[in-house]
Design a protein around this nucleic acid. Structure first.
Lengths: 252, 252
DNA sequence: TCAAAAGTGTTCTAACTACACCCATGC
DNA sequence: GCATGGGTGTAGTTAGAACACTTTTGA
């Protein structure tokens, strides 16, 4: 959505292309340097932030829509993306609500009641290229412990996303989208510690991951300067995808 | 939906009252006499069964819609009802599909593409009064191990419902909607065994539930005729709702 | 030689598993 | 008294928790 003409068309005829009552909102978790952040969008002309989202095309499969929206915002695809809830209860979602009324004609399709499908994604913050478009003034990565009041019902959505993400962590391995191909034990441990906001014992942590067969030694080391060089590990892809499908009980 | 006039109005003007692109489909698990069954609907004039479902009202909160639909079908309310997935991917849900074309005019609102929110419910089969309406020839309780080919994408939905239901069992207590107020240890054990399709050791099972504080002894017994009379237990409601909210790790 | 980070092995404990015998009841 | 189902305790095993010292590296 780049040109003025496209924009005008979206406002006037968007409902021909998209369902007017169905949006997707993404809680995009970014991990970088031992911090967990969430991607927030500041809308042009609106005060305050929201989760990035978009509409679902009338002929578009739902999952494909979620991937498209994510790619539009972050320019990456093929990432870990999970649907977690369909929102349609809050006052904001039952009222034919007041949002945007100052910008839009009274009969605009954008003033309809919307349902929203919540997805969460885990991405490597550093590999994301934010794509600002004409709707968004800017995107910011916000520390997950310092989330401001968001627009619409997005605080509730984000809270639920965090809950689901943390619970799912115990049933699915993560990391392949968040770490480089080869990583050290302290790196993957930090990842888990940051996301779960919990500390683990070095020895027990590595024992667990190795005994599960989830990661394996590459016989390489990484030089980190003035300290002992840590060994490099990689995921056992077979085991990894097996666990993604079949589920694991990762008691951490 | 009882009279001809109401029915006509639904076909012609249903989309004024309901969103034409959003349905709710319920996987209603019924437990009775050590069997787990699922409620299937046989539609008037259609060959084959489907999960019971309905449309979401334009001003109706989503959860309320789910409860309403469930009550319409089973005549009970206040039961354990969980949203588990929003379906919008299968061919049936992206095609402006061919269903019902023999009954409906080409521009009927019922021929739109629909998304469906999947809910599952656990009910006491014996306390359900099936409400047949003009759309449904009949409802049947089908053994969960003998599910026939269902209409639409409902086999996929049911499979996912079962998966989610079983996983959630490990994080939430069940039983309050499925057992009478007071029950024996063998009864609740059978319930879990049936739902999870797995057997447990009598001693370990009771030890677990009692040590969690989930159930407690009522100091009563039930006479079961020609055998030793078992003790009656009841749920500790405080612990139960605490665990519903906070989650438990029920390794069974 | 010192500071900072990485690597590694053992003991303790708690939770789960497996298992067998006795009791109550009605026929 | 016997068949049927209900009730209970213990020993063994395993997985997780707790814990401290040594090694590498560059400044």
């Amino acid at each position: 959505m780049k040109t003025e003409a496209e924009l005008k068309d979206f406002f006037e005829n968007g409902d021909k292309k998209y369902f007017s009552n169905l949006t997707i909102d993404c809680s995009i978790f970014g991990y970088h340097e031992r911090q967990l952040k969430i991607l927030l969008a500041k809308w042009n002309g609106l005060d305050g932030f929201s989760l990035p989202g978009g509409f679902v095309g009338r002929k578009e499969p739902l999952t494909q829509a979620a991937n498209r929206i994510l790619k539009e915002k972050t320019s990456i695809d093929n990432i870990f993306l999970q649907q977690f809830y369909m929102f349609g209860d809050s006052e904001f979602r039952t009222d034919n609500h007041k949002k945007f009324t100052k910008f839009l004609p009274k009969d605009s399709w954008l003033l309809n009641r919307t349902f929203s499908v919540g997805y969460y994604a885990l991405v490597d913050y550093a590999s994301v290229t934010i794509e600002e478009d004409i709707f968004t003034e800017k995107y910011v990565w916000q520390d997950i412990n310092k989330i401001p009041d968001l627009l619409f019902d997005h605080n509730e959505m984000l809270e639920k996303a965090i809950q689901h993400m943390r619970i799912n962590l115990h049933h699915q391995p993560i990391g392949i989208n968040l770490l480089s191909k080869e990583f050290t034990l302290p790196e993957i441990q930090s990842l888990y510690e940051t996301i779960l906001d919990k500390e683990f014992d070095r020895r027990n942590f590595s024992k667990k991951l190795l005994s599960l067969g989830l990661i394996k030694d590459t016989n390489k080391i990484r030089s980190i300067g003035q300290h002992r060089s840590p060994k490099l590990y990689c995921f056992d892809k077979k085991k990894y995808s097996q666990m993604l499908k079949g589920g694991i009980a990762l008691e951490l």
